[in-house]
């Protein structure tokens, strides 16, 4: 229940946080909402010697319309994303995912940046940002670096972020009028993390799918885009038959490391991925 001792540093700016990061290197961890790091520290699974608080940085909590995309400050808590009118209008997928993270208290404290940087393979945001084709802005001492989301999730709890970088902004393209999206999740009954979470974004032109993006979380060692399902739907009409056929291909990529635990075997997870692909796509179809 009590973390091991550490030194605490309150960063007032991204620059200050970066210089602390470079000073303490591997011995330091960033804390924002604390809902990924602190639970690990309490169980002493993480024992950083230095904790750098970036929640104290002014101006990391925002959701802004930048025309082509919506910019979300990395320090924005889930509750703000859930309730954002702007996101609900222009990129509801993020709000939908945020709404089913943890519980209300966790949504008040936990931040999108913290969740993404932690890269828990069963967290909700990873599927949403993948399907949204987000861009992630990492700030380092040499400036900003924009990481396309498909390069971000490297492995279990591993991202493309350098140890001396801070995730500062998430950019999600706004959806067009003929685009619909949905996030559906089968939660673990205890942790409420996703056993399977499916995010989908579908754009229709002339009654055919012109763009289909499907991503899963909870299923494999990292969240992933499922091109098998996507390809099967492209240029197809969005009918229950086409959806059924495409969804059956979910989580079939041989390269995936499907997770397995007492609650869900590999087979069951793969099966749930198909069910949730279908249900998510059906929800989208009914929204057109």
């Amino acid at each position: 229940m009590y973390p091991a001792p550490f030194e605490y540093h309150r960063a007032r700016s991204v620059d200050e946080a970066l210089s602390l990061l470079s000073q303490y290197g591997e011995a330091a961890k960033l804390i924002a909402g604390g809902h990924s790091l602190l639970p690990m520290m309490k169980l002493r699974l993480a024992t950083p010697a230095h904790v750098i608080d970036i929640r104290t940085i002014q101006g990391l909590q925002y959701i802004e319309d930048r025309g082509d995309y919506i910019a979300i400050g990395a320090g924005t808590p889930h509750a703000m994303i859930e309730q954002s009118e702007l996101l609900r209008a222009k990129m509801p997928l993020l709000s939908q995912a945020a709404a089913v993270i943890g519980d209300p208290q966790i949504r008040n404290m936990g931040t999108i940046g913290g969740s993404l940087a932690h890269a828990d393979p069963a967290a909700d945001y990873p599927a949403a940002v993948l399907a949204a084709e987000a861009q992630l802005v990492a700030t380092g001492e040499s400036g900003e670096r924009v990481i396309p989301v498909e390069e971000f999730f490297v492995d279990l709890f591993q991202t493309d972020l350098d140890e001396r970088e801070i995730l500062t902004e998430i950019r999600v393209p706004a959806i067009s009028e003929n685009t619909r999206c949905a996030y559906r999740k089968f939660p673990h009954p205890a942790s409420r993390f996703a056993v399977v979470g499916c995010a989908a974004v579908v754009t229709m032109e002339n009654n055919r799918c012109s763009d289909v993006r499907i991503a899963f979380t909870g299923v494999a060692s990292t969240a992933f885009r499922d091109t098998g399902v996507e390809d099967a739907l492209k240029a197809q009409p969005l009918t229950s038959q086409s959806i059924e056929k495409a969804a059956a291909l979910a989580a079939e990529n041989d390269e995936l490391e499907i997770m397995e635990d007492h609650f869900a075997t590999e087979d069951y997870r793969r099966h749930l991925a198909k069910v949730f692909a279908r249900r998510t796509l059906n929800q989208i179809a009914s929204a057109f």
């Binding site: 673990h188 009954p189 205890a190 942790s191 007492h262 609650f263």
Partner: peptide
Amino acid sequence: AVYDENGELLASSFLEYA
């Protein structure tokens, strides 16, 4: 409350035990 073959309790927190 499930034990593995080594006698470790698998559902040993509220994150696993619902």
